[in-house]
Write a protein that binds this DNA or RNA. Structure first.
Lengths: 147, 147
DNA sequence: ATTCCTGCAAAAACTTTGCACCATG
DNA sequence: CATGGTGCAAAGTTTTTGCAGGAAT
C-alpha cells in the first residue's frame, strides 16, 4: 500500500530529484496520518519530532513535490488552509469524497463509484473528458443530528 | 431572477444592515457578471468604474456579507484566490457543478440532478443528511481535446 | 565534483482589522 | 442623531523566493 524508501527513491530519480531525510520524513508523516487532513503547519509540527532541523519552507516545497508526484492529494475545506492527505488511489482509480459536518466539522471519507455515471453524462452531453474530480458534501452527521 | 434595490434593502434591514451605494454596486457587478467567477480584486476593479471611491477592504467586507446572506456563492479553483459568483439557487434547490479544463482553465457550469441520487445513498449508508455540495470535475474540454 | 536541496530570513500575496470620519434610516 | 458603514493604512496569515552553505549521487 505505502511507498517504501526504495520505491520513493526510484520515483524521485525518474524525475531527477534526490532522496533526502526531509522528503522521506514528510512522506512518512503523511502515511502515518492516513485519513487525516493536515495543513502545512501541522505537518511541520509533526515532522519536527523526527527531523528537528527542518524548516517550514522545506515542508512547503516537499508537499508541492509530493503532490506533483501524485503521492498526496490536496484538499480544501474552505477554512483558509490547504490540506493534504496521502493518496489512496495511486494504483486503482477509486476516488473518494468528503462528507463535511456543518456542526462539528468532522470529515467523513466515502468511496463511491456512482460518480462515474455522472462523468459519463458529462462526456456525452458536454464533450468534456473527466480525468479527476473533487467532491464535498456538506450536511449533518449521525452524531450531530440527535443533538 | 435578480435582486433589485428594494428587495436588497429589505433583506439587509431584516438583519439590521443598511443599504449603501457600495453594497448595491458590488451586488450589481456580481449580477452583471453571472457565470464568471470573480476574485475580490477583480470585483474591486469593476466596481471602481461605477463607484471610484470604494476601497478594497469594503469589497471584502461586502462579499462576506453577501455570502452570509446567501446571495452569492463561494468557489475555490485552487489558484490561490477565493472566487465568487451570483447565487443561482436562491429560490429553487438546483445546484450546479463546475467542469474545469486542465489545459485552458476554462470553467463550464453544469446543472445536474444526478447528484441527488448520491445524496440519498449517503443518507442511507452513512446516516449523513446532505444539505449542500461542492463538486468540481477536472478534465479536457471540447476545444482542447483536438489540439 | 556536480547537481540538487536545505534553512533562514525576507518578501509576496491575499485578507482582515483599527480608527476617525461619514452616511443611512 | 444614533447606529452602522467606509476608506485608508497598518497588521495578520499563509505561502513563496533568494541565497549561501550543505548533502546526495
Amino acid at each position: 500500500m505505502f511507498v517504501n524508501s526504495e520505491e520513493f527513491k526510484k520515483i524521485l530519480k525518474e524525475k531527477g530529484f534526490k532522496l533526502t531525510t526531509q522528503r522521506r520524513t514528510v512522506l512518512d508523516v503523511l502515511q502515518r496520518n492516513e485519513g487525516k487532513h493536515l495543513t502545512a503547519e501541522e505537518i511541520y509540527e509533526i515532522v519536527k519530532k523526527d527531523c528537528p532541523e527542518i524548516g517550514l519552507a522545506t515542508v512547503y516545497r516537499t508537499i508541492q513535490l509530493l503532490h506533483e508526484l501524485k503521492l498526496i492529494d490536496k484538499l480544501n475545506l474552505d477554512d483558509g488552509y490547504i490540506r493534504y492527505e496521502i493518496g489512496k488511489f495511486n494504483n486503482d482509480h477509486h476516488h473518494h469524497h468528503h462528507l463535511i459536518c456543518e456542526r462539528c466539522g468532522n470529515v467523513i471519507e466515502v468511496e463511491d463509484d456512482l460518480m462515474e455515471s455522472i462523468e459519463e453524462r458529462f462526456q456525452n452531453n458536454y464533450d468534456f473528458q473527466v480525468t479527476d474530480h473533487k467532491v464535498k458534501f456538506y450536511g449533518i452527521c449521525r452524531n450531530c443530528k440527535d443533538n
